[in-house]
Amino acid sequence: MGKRGPAPRPLTPIQRFTAFRLVYRNGATMQDIADEAEVSRMTIWKWQQREDFAKCYEQEYRNMVQRVRSRWRSKVR
């Protein structure tokens, strides 16, 4: 049994920006982020269901955690 539909396209710059903004919300709501990306909240929700979008989000989240940890370590010392 094969896959359904065509293979997903690579993430667009808007999708990568949205993944970044979901990590770095700074108090922004989902609607605020959707407005910045000029898409609907439903579109963002659909993107979040994509495996490649989820991986991009997770990588950005890990990068953020590393930056916070390194800043914290430099302040503690």
Rank of each mutant, 00 (worst) to 15 (best):
M42Y: 08
M42D: 08
T43E: 10
I44H: 09
W45M: 09
K46Q: 14
W47L: 04
W47P: 04
W47A: 01
Q48W: 06
Q48M: 11
Q48G: 06
Q48I: 04
Q49Y: 04
R50P: 02
R50V: 02
R50H: 05
R50E: 15
R50A: 06
E51A: 06
D52H: 10
D52M: 00
D52N: 14
D52C: 03
F53V: 02
F53L: 00
F53A: 00
A54D: 08
K55N: 08
K55Y: 03
K55M: 08
K55S: 11
K55T: 11
C56N: 05
C56T: 05
C56V: 01
Y57S: 02
E58G: 05
Q59M: 10
E60M: 07
E60I: 06
Y61V: 00
R62S: 02
R62G: 00
N63F: 03
N63I: 03
M64Y: 06
M64H: 08
V65Y: 05
Q66F: 10
Q66G: 06
Q66N: 09
R67M: 05
R67W: 00
R67G: 07
V68W: 10
V68L: 15
R69N: 14
R69I: 15
S70I: 07
S70C: 04
R71Q: 09
R71N: 13
W72P: 01
W72A: 13
W72D: 10
R73Y: 07
S74W: 13
S74I: 05
K75H: 13
K75T: 09
K75P: 06
K75E: 14
